[in-house]
Simulated assay, not measured.
Amino acid sequence: MPCASRLRVPAAIRDHRSQDPATTSRTRHGGAFAMDDAIDGTWALALPGWDDLSTWGYDSGTGSFFAQLTRNGNNDDNGPDIWITPGASFPAVTAPAHLRPLIASSTGAAAADVTAAMNHAVDRQGAPARYRLAV
């Protein structure tokens, strides 16, 4: 599994990241996140078979969680193999729990493996603790 510091995060993602807690509310609404409850960030996705270059995170510019998925052995010079972001193929994703099944169905991975991969970001990469998924 690659170290997060060796992960190559595309410049478009790096340039928009912000960790300013002053602009975020910690209020929850029915177990889902309010848009002002999410914090911008990008974390490595430690999903077996996809863990070399794949990332997930939140982008306040789109108001959505996202995933950039590149199968191991492929490069992402022309973008990821699968990009889960709001548009024609995917709706806005308002919570990490809503991103999990999209990653699972897009990669063919088991939901439990996706859960472990996303929770790895919380446990070891500094993703907010409230992004932890129930096992």
Score class of each variant (00 low, 15 high):
Met1Leu: 13
Thr94Gly: 08
Ala97Ser: 14
Ala22Leu: 10
Arg124Ile: 06
Arg6Met: 07
Phe90Glu: 08
Asn75Thr: 15
Arg130Ile: 07
Ala121Phe: 03
Arg14Ala: 00
Ala134Tyr: 10
Val93His: 03
Asp113Tyr: 02
Thr27Asp: 13
Asp81Ser: 11
Pro128Met: 02
Phe90Lys: 09
His98Phe: 11
Thr107Pro: 05
Gly57Thr: 03
Trp43Thr: 05
Ala97Arg: 13
Ala11Trp: 12
His98Met: 11
Ser5Gly: 06
Ala22Pro: 02
Trp43Pro: 06
Phe33Met: 13
Leu53Val: 03
Ala44Glu: 07
Ser5Leu: 10
Ala134His: 12
Ala4Tyr: 05
Ala46Gly: 03
Asp77Cys: 13
Asp59Lys: 06
Tyr58Pro: 04
Ile13Lys: 00
Ser89Trp: 04
Leu69Asp: 05
Ala38Glu: 06
Val93Arg: 00
Gly126Thr: 02
Ala88His: 13
Ala111Lys: 07
Asp37Asn: 08
Phe65Met: 10
Ala38Ser: 12
Thr23Ala: 15
Pro91Met: 06
Leu7Gln: 01
Gly79Ser: 01
Ala92Arg: 15
Ala109Thr: 04
Ser105Lys: 12
Arg71Ile: 05
Arg26Gln: 12
Tyr131Leu: 00
Arg132Ile: 00
His29Lys: 15
Ala92Ile: 11
Pro80Leu: 01
Ser106Thr: 02
Thr107Val: 08
Arg124Gln: 14
Asp77Phe: 14
Ala4Lys: 09
Ile82Ala: 05
Thr85Asp: 11
Asp123Val: 00
Ile82Asn: 02
Leu69Lys: 02
Thr107Gly: 04
Ala97Val: 10
Thr70Leu: 07
Gly41His: 01
Ala111Phe: 05
Trp43Tyr: 12
Val135Asp: 15
Cys3Pro: 11
Pro101Val: 02
Asp77Ser: 15
Cys3Glu: 14
Ala95Val: 05
Ser105Gly: 09
Ala22Ile: 07
Gly31Asn: 04
Gly87Pro: 08
Leu69Cys: 02
Arg71Gln: 14
Leu102Tyr: 00
Thr94Leu: 11
Gly30Thr: 03
Phe33Asp: 08
Leu47Asn: 03
Ala117His: 04
Ser18Glu: 07
Asp36Asn: 15
Thr23Asn: 10
Ala44Tyr: 04
Leu102Ile: 05
Arg132Thr: 00
